[in-house]
Design a protein around this nucleic acid. Structure first.
Lengths: 116, 116
DNA sequence: TCGGAATATAACTGTAAAGTTATATTCCGA
DNA sequence: TCGGAATATAACTTTACAGTTATATTCCGA
């Protein structure tokens, strides 16, 4: 009853919780891009872009599709599903607890009434 | 059509994307606790716990209820709603784009067929 | 096959944030 | 009203990571 919720992957969250990387993620919402394109649009140096993309890649947020000497990066859906599921169950858990608390308070009231 | 998605608050995400703070959040899932309780259960120094709680508090993840010289910290629901909404719309956006892509590919196929 | 474009990576620097130590504040009970 | 418990905060140290510079690798076209 009210079992342990699966914890979310902290490093995956940290990967997203960085302005430049979030900008990359938002950029990739509209479709895959090469490193160069990403760097140009966000005004990052190429190594800087590559570094951030590595972090995103290591955390399963993007995947790479090499094409000649270019590399197209695209978003993966899974991490967003995981985050949504996590946030949802978190709320459910909280709401359930608050309901239980209400029940508890109600029970106390009833007990008191019975004593009158 | 396919308008800009509201960005999520990066500092709110960062607040969650730290192991100790996530542990605090998970601890508070089951109900409000004082600073001392949190510090004891997670084996943090008291100032350390206070510092993390300040970050969580500044980002609207927890709220405080002072009671004598103790302070009860409890979770707020809103950030989790925001995160869920963000993750959901992100997926919707991605799936919509993929659908459009499918349409596009389909259109190409039809065009080709028409040419035969 | 040589030169340049696209990218990754190693090595470095600077800074922000985690974590600690010490101290101030507020509250209650003896 | 004094002492101790609970907490916040300032000042500090340390560590992790963002961002840069320089270089290596791979691929294509001339």
């Amino acid at each position: 009853m009210m079992g342990k919720l699966k914890s979310i992957d902290i490093s995956m969250l940290s990967a997203l919780a960085e302005p430049k990387r979030m900008a990359i993620v938002e950029l990739l919402r509209d479709g895959p891009l090469t490193v160069g394109e990403i760097a140009k649009r966000l005004e990052l140096s190429q190594p800087h872009a590559s570094k951030h993309l590595k972090v995103l890649s290591d955390n399963g947020i993007v995947e790479v599709k090499p094409e000649a000497n270019r590399r197209y990066y695209k978003l993966r859906l899974e991490p967003f599903q995981v985050i949504e599921y996590w946030a949802t169950s978190f709320q459910t858990h909280l709401e359930k607890r608050l309901d239980n608390l209400d029940d508890y308070v109600q029970k106390l009231k009833n007990d008191r009434k019975r004593d009158e």
